[in-house]
């Protein structure tokens, strides 16, 4: 007999996000008890304004990991699109909208290049994006003359506070999370991404060409990286060619803490957002209690490993039940 019961919506959401939310609350409580200044509005506004760049890249990285790929070039792409944007404003005297568009196009092009090379030539995205990391970083130094290029306040509106101290950048990042989540769960594109990450050959033999979809995912991450670049530019009122060095590790860590599988086929944008929050709260909290840089890095590293172990444990337990 076939029976049909839809699992309760609440049960699903609670099961999926409860662990992450619990970890987050635990961290907040811990840092709150360690520092009187932690649980204040100020801290949260700071965190909220710190995370947009990380968040938008993490959304794109979630998609890349879901199709069983990886992209290490996000930080460099961020710097290059920021640099080109500043070049257009300072040297070519473009208007801000055109310069921003150039920045976004740059990022998209980088992602597209990574995608096309790795998909068409069937090369590991790890290596191709490692190459792109160097190429884009070199490009960033080239277009900025290896110096921080000050643009001035024409772009800082992106990062100025609006209602309750929240910046437009944060609102954009939030919208991207919402769109990203709906895309993953409710669109054909999202369904195809999940399918490709689960079993690419099965997708191909179901009549779906995986290649354009994979390329689009890398291009999308490129675009999102350049949006992160614009946020960063607005924050500094300048294009810094050294911006985003090593940020790919933070981005990947946030996505993995959120439970997205490096093997592909499984992931959630909302969980990724929790991952970003956990990384950011950890960082802000440790800064607040005056932890030294080495301690901070050691603890962040341990948290990442613990998160993946926990995820693996949950996964094996689930499999054993079947």
């Amino acid at each position: 007999m076939t029976t049909s019961t839809t699992p309760s919506r609440f049960g699903g959401i609670a099961g999926t996000y409860m662990g992450l939310a619990g970890a987050l609350v635990l961290m907040l409580a811990l840092f709150g008890s360690l520092s009187h200044y932690f649980l204040t509005v100020n801290t949260f506004v700071t965190i909220a304004n710190d995370i947009p760049a990380l968040t938008v890249m993490a959304v794109g990285m979630t998609f890349v990991l879901i199709i069983a790929g990886i992209d290490l070039s996000v930080g460099s792409v961020m710097a290059l699109s920021s640099g080109l944007c500043s070049l257009a404003i300072l040297q070519w005297h473009w208007g801000l909208p055109a310069a921003l568009l150039l920045g976004l196009a740059t990022g998209t092009a980088c992602g597209l290049a990574t995608g096309i090379v790795s998909v068409k030539w069937q090369l590991p995205s790890f290596i191709v994006s490692l190459g792109m990391l160097e190429v884009a970083r070199g490009g960033a130094y080239l277009v900025t003359d290896s110096r921080t290029q000050y643009i001035g306040d024409m772009i800082d509106w992106l990062n100025s506070s609006l209602i309750g101290g929240i910046s437009p950048a944060f609102i954009i990042a939030f919208l991207i999370i919402v769109i990203g989540h709906v895309t993953l769960t409710r669109s054909v594109f999202g369904r195809y991404m999940i399918g490709i990450g689960t079993n690419e050959e099965a997708m191909r033999l179901a009549g779906v060409d995986p290649r354009p979809i994979k390329i689009a995912v890398y291009a999308l991450l490129g675009l999102l990286s350049s949006i992160a670049g614009m946020f960063q530019t607005a924050r500094l009122e300048a294009a810094d060619p050294n911006t985003g060095i090593g940020i790919e590790l933070q981005v990947i860590a946030a996505v993995v803490i959120g439970g997205t599988s490096l093997m592909g086929g499984r992931g959630s944008v909302i969980s990724t957002f929790f991952g970003v929050l956990i990384i950011s709260v950890l960082e802000a909290g440790m800064a607040q209690i005056g932890a030294s840089e080495p301690t901070k890095r050691i603890i962040t590293g341990l948290v990442i490993i613990a998160a993946v172990m926990l995820d693996k444990y949950r996964d094996t337990r689930k499999q054993r039940r079947h």
């Binding site: 409710r186 054909v188 369904r191 999940i194 399918g195 689960t198 079993n199 099965a202 997708m203």
Partner: peptide, 27 residues
Amino acid sequence: QSLLLDKSIVVNTTLATLNRVTRRGWL
């Protein structure tokens, strides 16, 4: 070669025919 093993019956059934259950790319 055919199935997405850890995905649902629904997902696996409609895989080759998503255009029949979508409007403008949305499921």
